[in-house]
Design a protein around this nucleic acid. Sequence first.
DNA 1: CGGCCCGGGTGTACGTAGTACACTCGATGA
DNA 2: TCATCGAGTGTACTACGTACACCCGGGCCG
Lengths: 239, 239
Amino acid sequence: MTQQAEATRRVPLNRDRVLTAAVVLADEAGIESLSMRRLAQELGVVPMALYKHVANKEELLDGMVDVLVAEIDPPVSDAGWKNAVRLRVLSARRSLLRHPWARQVLESRSARTPAVLGYMDSFIGMFLAGGFSVDLTHHVMHALGSRMWGFTQELFDDSAGAAPVEPAPEIQAAMLQEMAKRYPNILRVAMAAEHDDGSVVSQGCDDQFEFEFALDLLLDGFERFHQQGWTSERARLER
Amino acid sequence: MTQQAEATRRVPLNRDRVLTAAVVLADEAGIESLSMRRLAQELGVVPMALYKHVANKEELLDGMVDVLVAEIDPPVSDAGWKNAVRLRVLSARRSLLRHPWARQVLESRSARTPAVLGYMDSFIGMFLAGGFSVDLTHHVMHALGSRMWGFTQELFDDSAGAAPVEPAPEIQAAMLQEMAKRYPNILRVAMAAEHDDGSVVSQGCDDQFEFEFALDLLLDGFERFHQQGWTSERARLER
DNA sequence: CGGCCCGGGTGTACGTAGTACACTCGATGA
DNA sequence: TCATCGAGTGTACTACGTACACCCGGGCCG
């Protein structure tokens, strides 16, 4: 009876269950709370049991990236390379925003799992299908950089988490004075981006807009190069 | 005597000595070997002694970033905004390449130390001095993203360290076949970038060139926007 | 049908990490 | 001369990743 109860309750572990549990845990508790021990606990299992399904924590993280990659939409066909790339990047960005841990994990890793390679391969394919030379495609992929994953190092970002205690107004005023003296340029930019909300710290900056601004800037540059048949010195020499 | 010997040998610790020792250790042994204990050992001191000079490891890392920022050249004046930005970014890149740990540390942190804010502030200043509107400056900073630090997520990078054992030629051939089937596009790009060196894995890809390619693409885009007096919808509405 | 094997789950244990807290001890200033 | 203070110490705690030996139940072969 108890045995059967246990048997029914305990769905046997497998790699997928481990990975998706890890993703859920990281989504909900933050990547810094994702330890092998905590994950095992979440799965109602002893820590070492995990090692029957992933070699170590690194492989766990790689596996999580794979889960994420699987969520990205496949490239649309017959819409022109520019649209295809744009849509795909925005899809990647949506996945990324669903999983706040992803940026850090992608950054910390040069994950070349099959899923990641597959993503990159089909990504390259969009440019080639659009008539880009192999040479230009190469440079263009580099220019895109981490934006192909739907993120850029968001330097102005506030995402440091935790309730930001709003200081008293007079303190804020003092901070503002201080900012104005030390970092006048930052202040100007921040104020312009905001101006309706009085707080200095947070900013009403539309990440999505910024992201698309930069993305389109790059895509337009790619297009210009492509149209004028640009080729790197190197590729020209080798012909 | 021994006391004096000790006294002479033991230069008193201070924040700067701790930070520069941390930078040296990270440079030489890798960021993963930088532990409070190891750093203390390197300084001939007990681990807890460090906590008299930095609050915790996070603050140590922030301090290391400050050291790095201090190495970046100040902006040149009277050379036009484009040149000024370009030179500064390339200087940042040089610092970054001197300290391999820097990319990871910058990425993992939204460090807003005074030194970092100062860097960003004077960076913004270059655009404003070039006549950019505050609005455009804002977007342009976002578009630059991590490139303002001299790096981009180098996705094709091999920097995973450790001697890459070259497999036997027949194995390589098999791998190549496999690649050709699974990731034909990657293969084409990789082969084009290489073609003189037979190995599939490593690539003779000129990082510096790629970096400048992308940087110039962005700068050219900025210039075009600037010349045509571009303004975001939002800024226009608010006038 | 009985023994065996094999693979997923267990228990214990080790080494390393960050750091809290109470301490010592020498220089310094009253 | 003596109290104070702050840099450096010692000990100890918790949490981590994971090596290694183990158990035990189900499937297979004889």
